[in-house]
Write a protein that binds this DNA or RNA. Structure first.
Lengths: 330, 330
DNA sequence: CTGAAAGCGCTAACAC
DNA sequence: GTGTTAGCGCTTTCAG
C-alpha cells in the first residue's frame, strides 16, 4: 500500500494519475474500467503503475453521479431478530459481496413509513433493492427507488415486479398430513404477527391443509414469532390440551415446548409439536423440533441470479419449494 | 406523494425546483438545507412548496461529491452468525437510523484482505466506520477509509483511535470466583477462534482469573464459538470430567451441555457450566446457562454518542463493564 | 439576502 | 486509440 498523494491531505484523483502516467484523464478512466474499453496495452500498463504508486482509489460518488448507478444493494427488513435471520442474511451478505456490491441494511421496524428511511438517502440510487419487509407493496417500493430493480420477497408483488416466493403450502400440507398420519385429530395454531401478508398466507395454508387432512383447528393463538411469545401461548394452550401444536416459527415452538413442560407435557409423548423455518443455527438437541424448511442456498442463488442480471430474471418469478422436516417432536 | 417530474423519466433536480419557484438554484440548496442558512422566509416557503409538488428528492451522490461526506456508517463484522449478534445488531441498526444515517454492513468472513471489500467502494467515503471484525488493526483501517471517524470495537486500537472496550476481565473474575466459591478446583476452558485478539484477551483473562482464584485449568479445547463446536468439544471433555467447564460463548456452552448430556452428565449436578455473552435471544429454558454479560444498550449508547459527535468522544475511549450473570448451570 | 459561477471527480460523446 | 469537452446534481464562494 504505497500511499503517496501528490497534494498533501488530498487523495489522488484521476487527474493526478493521468499526469503521472502522461496520458489524458479519459485514458485513465478507460484503463481502470472493469469492462474492456479501447486503450493501448502500453498506456494501460503505465496507468496501472501510476495508479498503484499514487495509491489511487476511484471515488464512487463521482462515478455514481456520472453513470447514475452505484454498486449498492438495499436489503429491507422488518427486524434482525429471529434465529432464521442468521441462517439467511449471513450467506446473503456473502453473496452480495461476491458480486462486488455492498449491502445497505434498512431495518424498518414496525413503522409503516418506510419512505422516511429513504428520503434523501442513498437508497434511492441503489443498484437493486431486496424487500423482505412486508411493510411495502410492489408499487410503493418502485415509486420509492430510483432503481427499477426491486425484488419482492415479502409476498407483496404485482404483475410488474420481480419476485421470489417461498411456496409454503407444499411443506405445510406435508406437515399436516404427517400429523394426521400419527393420529392427530385436532390441533392449535400459534401464529406470528398477523398483519403480515406472508403470515396471513401461512395461516391460510394451515387452515386449508387441516381442512384437507381432516384435522380440526381448535383455536389460533397470537404470538410475535419470538420464543417469549411461545412461552406465553403455552399458558393458553395448556388449558385444553390439543393433540398437536403447529407454530409459524421455530422460536415460538421452542417457547411452547418450554411453556408446556412446566405443565408436565412433553412432545412427542404428550402432544406433537411442529415449528416453521427449520433453522440451522437454532437446531439444538434440546429443541429437536419438526418443522417446515426450504433450501436457503436455493433462495440465495435465486437472489444472486437476480442481482447479476435482473432483466433476465424469469417474469413469472421464482418459486422455492418447502418441505416437511421430521425431527423429534412430531 | 405527488410525483411529477418536469421532464419525463427523469427525477426533478434542484434546477427544476428553482425554476418552478422562480429563484436561483443556490437558494433552493439553502432552503432545503437542514442547517439554517440565509434565505428569506417567503422564498423558503415557495421553494418548499415547489419541491413538494415536484416530488423532489435530493441526490445524495451529488451532495456527497460536493461536500465530501455522506450519511453512511460502515459496520465491519466477521460474520453474522452468533446468537449474540442478534442482540447487538438489531438495536444498533435502529440507533444508526435514528441519526438519519444508514448502515452498510461489511462481512469480511475469514479473509484477511479486508481492503478487497473496500477497494473503490463507497465505504471509503462513509461518515464513520464501526469495526467489530478483528481482521484489521487501527492503522490499517484508518488508511483504508477516507473518513478518520473509525471506532474500534475489536480491541485492536492504538493511541490515535477512538475505541470502546468491553472490560471482560471484571466479569470473568467474578465468574471464576463464583465457581471457586461453589467448590470448583479444576476446570476446562473451551475457546473460540484463537486468532482473534478479543478471544486472546478473553482466554488470558480466564487464565489469570483461575490463577488468582486457585482454580486449576486442566486444558483448553478449541472451538469456533458455534453450538456445533461445543458439541464436539464435549467429546474431549467427557474423557476426564472436570468440575467445571468455562466456554467463551453461550452457543458453545449449549453445545457442551448437549454433548455431555449424551454421557449422562448434566449441570449443575455433575459439573458447573459457564458461557459467555449472556444472550437474550438465546436464553431458552433448556439452556439456562450462567454467563458473563454486559449492558448492550450502554454499548449502543456509546456508539451513538460517537456517531453523533466523534470529536467529542473521550480520548481515553469508553469502557463497558461486564458482570457475572448467575443462571441455572453454575 | 440573492444569484452567478466555479468546482467536487468521474464518464460519455465527440472529434481527431 | 486518443484527447478534449461537456456534463452528472449539488454546495459554496464571492460579488452584488
Amino acid at each position: 500500500m504505497t500511499e503517496k498523494p501528490p497534494r498533501e491531505g488530498k487523495r489522488p484523483t484521476i487527474a493526478d494519475v493521468a499526469r503521472a502516467a502522461g496520458v489524458a484523464p479519459a485514458i485513465v478512466s478507460r484503463a481502470l474500467s472493469p469492462s474492456r474499453r479501447p486503450v493501448s496495452l502500453e498506456k494501460k500498463e503505465r496507468v496501472l503503475k501510476a495508479a498503484a504508486e499514487l495509491g489511487y482509489h476511484q471515488n464512487p460518488l463521482a462515478r455514481g453521479l456520472a453513470t447514475k448507478s452505484i454498486d449498492l444493494v438495499a436489503v429491507i427488513i422488518n427486524y434482525l431478530s429471529d434465529l432464521s435471520d442468521l441462517d439467511l442474511f449471513d450467506p446473503l451478505l456473502d453473496a452480495i459481496q461476491s458480486l462486488g456490491k455492498q449491502a445497505i441494511l434498512i431495518r424498518v421496524g414496525r413503522t409503516k413509513r418506510i419512505d422516511d428511511f429513504l428520503r434523501n438517502s442513498l437508497s434511492y440510487h441503489v443498484h437493486a433493492a431486496l424487500v423482505f419487509s412486508d411493510f411495502a407493496d410492489a408499487g410503493e417500493v418502485r415509486a420509492l427507488f430510483h432503481s427499477d430493480n426491486v425484488l419482492m420477497l415479502n409476498g407483496r408483488f404485482d404483475a410488474e415486479s420481480a419476485r421470489i416466493r417461498i411456496d409454503e403450502q407444499s411443506g405445510i400440507d406435508e406437515l399436516v398430513r404427517h400429523a394426521r398420519g400419527r393420529g392427530v385429530g385436532s390441533a392449535v395454531l400459534v401464529t406470528g404477527r398477523v398483519s403480515s401478508l406472508v403470515e396471513e398466507a401461512r395461516i391460510a395454508a394451515y387452515r386449508s391443509a387441516c381442512a384437507a387432512a381432516g384435522v380440526r383447528l381448535l383455536s389460533e393463538v397470537g404470538g410475535d414469532y419470538s420464543y417469549g411469545s411461545g412461552v406465553k401461548a403455552a399458558a393458553v394452550i395448556a388449558v385444553a390440551m390439543p393433540e398437536a401444536v403447529f407454530c409459524t416459527s421455530d422460536s415460538m415452538a421452542m417457547g411452547v415446548m418450554d411453556g408446556l413442560a412446566r405443565a408436565g407435557r412433553r412432545p412427542p409423548a404428550d402432544y406433537l409439536l411442529y415449528g416453521f423455518d427449520a433453522v440451522d443455527k437454532g437446531n439444538f438437541a434440546a429443541y429437536d423440533i419438526s418443522s417446515v424448511g426450504f433450501d436457503r442456498s436455493a433462495l440465495v442463488a435465486g437472489i444472486l441470479a437476480y442481482l447479476g442480471a435482473p432483466e433476465e430474471f424469469p417474469a413469472a418469478g421464482l418459486d422455492i419449494p418447502t418441505r416437511f422436516i421430521a425431527r423429534g417432536t412430531g
